[in-house]
Protein backbone atom coordinates (compact mmCIF):
# COMPACT_ATOMS: atom_id res chain seq x y z
CA UNK A 1 0.00 0.00 0.00
CA UNK A 2 1.42 3.38 -1.02
CA UNK A 3 1.89 6.21 1.49
CA UNK A 4 -0.96 8.36 0.13
CA UNK A 5 -3.46 5.49 0.00
CA UNK A 6 -2.43 4.35 3.46
CA UNK A 7 -3.04 7.84 4.85
CA UNK A 8 -6.33 8.28 2.95
CA UNK A 9 -7.83 5.04 4.29
CA UNK A 10 -6.49 5.51 7.82
CA UNK A 11 -9.77 6.37 9.54
CA UNK A 12 -11.52 3.21 8.37
CA UNK A 13 -8.50 0.99 9.01
CA UNK A 14 -7.61 2.40 12.46
CA UNK A 15 -11.03 3.08 13.95
CA UNK A 16 -13.58 1.02 12.02
CA UNK A 17 -15.20 4.20 10.80
CA UNK A 18 -17.74 3.64 8.01
CA UNK A 19 -20.67 5.51 6.51
CA UNK A 20 -24.39 5.78 7.16
CA UNK A 21 -26.90 6.95 4.56
CA UNK A 22 -28.93 9.72 6.16
CA UNK A 23 -31.85 8.97 3.79
CA UNK A 24 -32.33 5.20 4.05
CA UNK A 25 -30.05 4.32 6.99
CA UNK A 26 -27.88 1.84 5.06
CA UNK A 27 -24.46 1.23 6.65
CA UNK A 28 -21.17 0.82 4.80
CA UNK A 29 -17.64 -0.18 5.61
CA UNK A 30 -15.20 1.26 4.68
CA UNK A 31 -16.24 4.89 4.26
CA UNK A 32 -18.41 5.29 1.17
CA UNK A 33 -19.57 8.42 -0.66
CA UNK A 34 -22.63 7.03 -2.49
CA UNK A 35 -25.47 4.93 -1.06
CA UNK A 36 -25.69 1.84 -3.25
CA UNK A 37 -29.27 1.19 -2.07
CA UNK A 38 -30.92 4.58 -2.65
CA UNK A 39 -28.18 6.43 -4.67
CA UNK A 40 -28.14 9.26 -2.13
CA UNK A 41 -24.94 11.27 -1.82
CA UNK A 42 -25.94 12.31 1.67
CA UNK A 43 -23.86 10.00 3.86
CA UNK A 44 -22.38 10.67 7.30
CA UNK A 45 -19.55 9.00 9.15
CA UNK A 46 -20.59 6.05 11.30
CA UNK A 47 -18.58 4.45 14.08
CA UNK A 48 -18.86 0.64 14.29
CA UNK A 49 -18.46 -0.88 17.75
CA UNK A 50 -15.81 -3.47 16.91
CA UNK A 51 -17.91 -6.40 18.12
CA UNK A 52 -18.43 -9.09 15.48
CA UNK A 53 -19.25 -12.74 14.83
CA UNK A 54 -17.64 -15.22 12.49
CA UNK A 55 -19.51 -16.12 9.30
CA UNK A 56 -16.95 -18.14 7.31
CA UNK A 57 -13.21 -18.66 7.30
CA UNK A 58 -10.31 -20.26 5.50
CA UNK A 59 -6.76 -21.17 6.45
CA UNK A 60 -4.01 -19.63 4.35
CA UNK A 61 -1.04 -21.96 3.84
CA UNK A 62 0.36 -20.37 0.68
CA UNK A 63 0.60 -16.67 1.41
CA UNK A 64 0.97 -13.70 -0.87
CA UNK A 65 4.32 -11.89 -0.94
CA UNK A 66 5.00 -10.14 2.32
CA UNK A 67 2.83 -12.45 4.40
CA UNK A 68 4.88 -15.67 4.14
CA UNK A 69 6.06 -15.41 7.74
CA UNK A 70 2.50 -15.53 9.07
CA UNK A 71 1.48 -18.94 7.62
CA UNK A 72 -0.63 -20.65 8.54
CA UNK A 73 -3.02 -17.80 9.20
CA UNK A 74 -6.77 -17.39 9.09
CA UNK A 75 -8.85 -15.14 6.93
CA UNK A 76 -12.60 -14.84 7.14
CA UNK A 77 -15.84 -13.03 6.59
CA UNK A 78 -17.15 -11.54 9.81
CA UNK A 79 -20.40 -9.75 10.53
CA UNK A 80 -20.11 -6.60 12.59
CA UNK A 81 -22.62 -6.14 15.40
CA UNK A 82 -24.37 -3.52 13.26
CA UNK A 83 -24.98 -6.04 10.45
CA UNK A 84 -22.26 -5.12 7.94
CA UNK A 85 -20.01 -7.93 6.71
CA UNK A 86 -16.28 -7.40 6.17
CA UNK A 87 -13.37 -9.65 5.22
CA UNK A 88 -10.47 -9.64 7.66
CA UNK A 89 -7.63 -11.66 9.09
CA UNK A 90 -8.50 -13.55 12.27
CA UNK A 91 -5.57 -13.47 14.68
CA UNK A 92 -4.46 -15.37 17.78
CA UNK A 93 -6.27 -18.56 16.72
CA UNK A 94 -4.46 -21.07 18.88
CA UNK A 95 -6.96 -23.86 18.22
CA UNK A 96 -8.58 -24.12 14.80
CA UNK A 97 -11.54 -26.01 16.28
CA UNK A 98 -12.88 -22.82 17.85
CA UNK A 99 -13.51 -21.37 14.38
CA UNK A 100 -17.23 -22.09 14.11
CA UNK A 101 -19.89 -19.83 12.56
CA UNK A 102 -21.19 -17.46 15.22
CA UNK A 103 -17.90 -17.33 17.17
CA UNK A 104 -17.74 -14.02 19.04
CA UNK A 105 -14.94 -11.77 17.81
CA UNK A 106 -13.62 -8.30 18.52
CA UNK A 107 -11.56 -6.04 16.32
CA UNK A 108 -7.98 -5.48 17.48
CA UNK A 109 -5.26 -3.09 16.31
CA UNK A 110 -2.40 -4.89 14.53
CA UNK A 111 0.27 -4.47 11.88
CA UNK A 112 -1.21 -5.11 8.44
CA UNK A 113 2.06 -5.12 6.55
CA UNK A 114 5.52 -3.64 6.58
CA UNK A 115 6.58 -3.59 2.93
CA UNK A 116 10.32 -3.00 2.84
CA UNK A 117 12.53 -2.36 5.86
CA UNK A 118 12.74 1.29 4.89
CA UNK A 119 9.06 1.76 4.03
CA UNK A 120 6.11 2.70 6.19
CA UNK A 121 4.35 0.27 8.49
CA UNK A 122 0.65 -0.10 7.76
CA UNK A 123 -1.57 -0.60 10.78
CA UNK A 124 -5.24 -1.48 11.01
CA UNK A 125 -7.86 -3.67 12.58
CA UNK A 126 -8.12 -7.45 12.49
CA UNK A 127 -10.51 -9.79 14.30
CA UNK A 128 -9.58 -11.85 17.35
CA UNK A 129 -11.64 -14.40 19.29
CA UNK A 130 -13.11 -12.97 22.50
CA UNK A 131 -11.31 -14.62 25.39
CA UNK A 132 -13.51 -13.34 28.17
Amino acid sequence: MGVARSWRTQKSRYRLTGSKCTKCGALYFPINIVCIKCTSLDLEEFQFSGKAKLIEWTRVDEAAKGFEHLVPYYFGIVELEEGVRISTQIVDVVDENILQPGLQLQMTFRKLGEGTEEGIINYGLKAEPVDW
Binding site: H69, L70, V91, D92, T108, F109, R110, K111, L112, I121, Y123, K126
Partner: peptide, 11 residues
Amino acid sequence: AMDEDTATISV
Protein backbone atom coordinates in the same frame (compact mmCIF):
# COMPACT_ATOMS: atom_id res chain seq x y z
CA ALA B 1 2.46 -11.95 18.04
CA MET B 2 4.16 -11.46 14.68
CA ASP B 3 1.82 -8.58 13.86
CA GLU B 4 2.19 -6.84 17.23
CA ASP B 5 4.66 -4.11 18.12
CA THR B 6 4.94 -1.19 20.51
CA ALA B 7 2.33 0.80 18.57
CA THR B 8 -0.31 -1.95 18.54
CA ILE B 9 0.23 -2.81 22.21
CA SER B 10 0.01 0.89 23.14
CA VAL B 11 -3.24 1.33 21.21
